[in-house]
């Protein structure tokens, strides 16, 4: 084998290794996508309707934070989220992100608490993580307006 051939073979081996690594990453991404992305979250009303099947297992729930309900107690944040006519009370440990505020849509990671309802759950949602869902609406902050008046 000439030096040139050997070099070509080594190059090919390197490319094949890169492709193999990429294939593994591709597989992992598809797996994460199939298990997480297809049902990325359930809206609060969907979640309440599906309590029987959801049980007390982890999932992501989405809803709007109801303004008057936010209370902080030690390390926990208590509030309620709504979607349509459904209201779900939430206890969250861990600090909420900066943008967390009344009226904002959030996605919460967690599960329904144990209880006597369908699927052995209660309506209370125990959250371990709060993610703020920003919309595609951008509004220029008015320099002369100090307080934001919602609705």
């Amino acid at each position: 084998m000439t030096t040139n051939e050997r070099l070509l073979k080594r190059r090919k081996l390197r490319i094949v290794i890169v492709l193999a690594i990429l294939l593994v990453i591709f597989g992992a991404l598809i797996y994460e996508g199939l298990t997480n992305s297809i049902e990325y979250f359930e809206t609060a009303s969907q979640a309440v309707a599906n309590r029987q099947t959801l049980g007390t297992s982890d999932f992501r729930i989405e809803g709007n934070v109801i303004g008057s309900t936010i209370k902080r107690k030690n390390e926990e944040t208590l509030f309620s989220i709504s979607s349509g006519k459904t209201v779900v009370p939430v206890i969250s440990n861990g600090s909420p992100p900066q943008l967390f505020q009344p009226g904002i849509p959030v996605v919460l990671v967690g599960h329904f608490a144990k209880g006597n309802g369908p699927g052995g759950t209660s309506l209370l949602f125990l959250s371990s993580q709060i993610m703020v869902k920003h919309t595609n609406q951008y509004i220029a902050a008015h320099p002369n307006r100090v307080k934001i008046v919602k609705n």
Partner: peptide, 16 residues
């Protein structure tokens, strides 16, 4: 990280 509060999440847009 600044808006949602996480660096990454497995939603469809990000994963794809």
């Amino acid at each position: 990280r600044t808006t949602w509060g996480v660096w990454w999440t497995w939603d469809a847009r990000l994963t794809l």
